[in-house]
Amino acid sequence: MATTLLTVIVCFAILYIAGAWLTHIHSAANQNSSDKQQSLINTVNELLPQTQCAQCGYPGCRPYAEAIVKNGIDINLCPPGGDQTIEALANLLGQPVIPLNTEMGENKPPQVAIIVEKDCIGCTLCIQACPVDAIVGAATFMHTVIEQDCTGCELCLPPCPVDCIELVPGKTGISNWAWPKPAS
């Protein structure tokens, strides 16, 4: 009788320990996979052009990266990145290279915004719209774009009540000094 009781107690104890151990493993695995997911999101984010233009339908490059990794959203929604970004993403994620979804927009050469200062009324709406804080100014004072920080995302255009923001061909690193492509 006593041995049976002991056996039962030991069995329960073993079950309890095994259960606790399994739960632990399960949570560790969960932790591990979410870490992996985070690092994948970071890698995907680094491949995106960081224009923060929201043309993909997400409010920035990181949210789009999260959508790609978590929800398996298409990788061809980024117009500023163009074919180059699609190819890099396809290589990373083991997906086929697909053409850019032009419903989101066209791939354009680099551009920057400039504020036509004589028309600016100082409403601060563009400052609030800029995703990279590249516009300076204050209410009823003239605003200006910090050219070197502007990503050319066009998000400042719609809120401007007097249409005083224009896009001009953007700066390039040393391309002004570039060697021409050989003719042959």
Partner: peptide, 21 residues
């Protein structure tokens, strides 16, 4: 070489934009 320098520069700009964002 010029193309690669330009790409490096773009990458650098993207990093700056990411930090600002």
């Amino acid at each position: 070489k010029a193309q690669l320098l330009e790409l490096d520069w773009q990458e650098e700009q993207a990093k700056i934009a990411q930090i600002r964002y």
